[in-house]
């Protein structure tokens, strides 16, 4: 199949690897957008999510807002912000942050909700302050779900950061947009493969992190009195 061999040729041609337009550089750009987005979204969403989960307040509002954010098409939002602010990194970061907030927020509050109420009651009865309960009991126990939210957010952002290229930025999306403009299927397919590989690597990384967060405690109960 020539499509496949063309794609392999594109991926293995050293010309495509180096330089400002090479995929090493594009991958770094792509990772940069992802990391910045996740950092901003986490700073916003995780404290709010923890607060909602800890206090149980505004939960239905949080569910409604995450639902609404989810329905917003990132592409449309991005273009809208670009028309307001002009071409640049900021619109992309804002649009991707809106995308990343729902899973992070939901991960944080549903993680805290999953913690046994009785454990929290016991911690309070022992004389932990609310902050200590959050730090020493709720967050450690909710960590697998919080990291799960983070994983989901990273995956979505890394996949969607391709749209940044549409509004003139770099990243791996460049190959998809440029390739489409000149009907260079090999370039588009090659770019796609790179995005998939990057997504898989990151997902694997976070799966490991999630496993580490879950795996410290044994789950089985070999009960003998």
């Amino acid at each position: 199949m020539s499509v496949v061999s063309d794609t392999i040729d594109w991926l293995t041609d050293p010309i495509n690897r180096t330089g400002p337009d090479g995929f090493v550089n594009r991958t770094v750009e792509h990772l940069g957008y992802t990391a910045e987005t996740i950092a901003i979204a986490a700073v916003i969403a995780i404290p709010i999510g923890l607060w909602i989960g800890h206090t149980g307040r505004f939960r239905s509002a949080a569910v409604a807002i995450t639902g609404a954010f989810r329905a917003l098409p990132t592409l449309g939002l991005l273009i809208l912000i670009v028309l307001f602010l002009g071409i640049g990194l900021t619109p992309t970061l804002i649009a991707l942050t809106v995308l990343a907030i729902p899973p992070l927020l939901a991960g944080a509050y549903s993680g805290l909700e999953s913690v046994d109420r009785q454990t929290i009651d016991a911690a309070r009865a022992m004389g932990m302050t609310e902050m200590q309960i959050l730090r020493k009991v709720e967050v450690p126990l909710a960590l697998p779900i919080i990291v799960g939210g983070l994983r989901s957010a990273v995956l979505q952002v890394v996949a969607t950061a391709t749209v940044a290229a549409y509004v003139g930025l770099g990243g791996l999306g460049r190959y998809l947009i440029d390739g489409q403009a000149i009907s260079d299927y090999a370039q588009m397919a090659g770019g796609s493969v790179l995005v998939i590989l990057l997504a898989l690597v990151l997902d694997g990384l976070f799966a490991g992190l999630q496993g580490a967060a879950t795996g410290r405690r044994p789950k089985k109960q070999p009960t003998t009195a």
Binding site: V3, A159, Q180, A189, S192, V193, V195, I196, L200
Partner: peptide, 18 residues
């Protein structure tokens, strides 16, 4: 399922026809 899910939609739209 996790692997399928990591594929960016635009990549899927482009790769599937091939």
């Amino acid at each position: 399922v996790a692997i399928l899910y990591t594929i960016p939609s635009i990549a899927m739209f482009i790769l599937l026809p091939g």
